[in-house]
Amino acid sequence: MADREWSTVDVEDIAALTAVYGGNPARWPADRRAAAVRALAMDGAAHELVVNEARLDALLSMVAEPEISAARVDSVVAGALARLDAVTAPAAAKAAPHKLDTFLPSPFDLVRTALSWLSVRAPQAGWLAGATVAGILVGVMTMPSATLSGAETTTAQAGTAVETAQADVTDMPSLLFTSYTVETHAR
């Protein structure tokens, strides 16, 4: 509709124009308006088309225009101003680049995320994983100290240390952790 010269228009053009824009010439595109108005003055059928579409326009115009009071505008603007601090200020965003560590999750966050994911996807697996983590933590905190001493001892002394460590370890978490420590000392 927009890819031609509009020096003259006929009734079909008027029909197409009013079917889109209605009967109010003020709404017609500027490139077609002058020629269309000229055609209206000379063509009764075109005039009838416009009058017919203008009736629908009149109905549409009966819908009340929303009232926008100054108080409402004030309220919206004031509300937006009050919320500016909550959003990133343009100048501040340029001046102070974000620190990388702000966006890195802590180990606690990772554990919490994993547990929450498990509890959502498989509630029983979530409980089991939680209990396992708690057990390991308790084991670490109560780990025997025998393996931590005697780093510079001779081979014979190291053998003694191994025996001592193995004798002291009675729970599963400690066994898991002390065997590596004992081998390190044994070397």
Binding site: P66, I68, D74, V76, V77, A80, L81, L84, A89, A92
Partner: peptide
Amino acid sequence: QGDRQAFALLAARHAPKAMK
């Protein structure tokens, strides 16, 4: 540049039509 007064002016200028 972070000018709140400019923001208030622009918002008040365009808010009525946007709200409508």
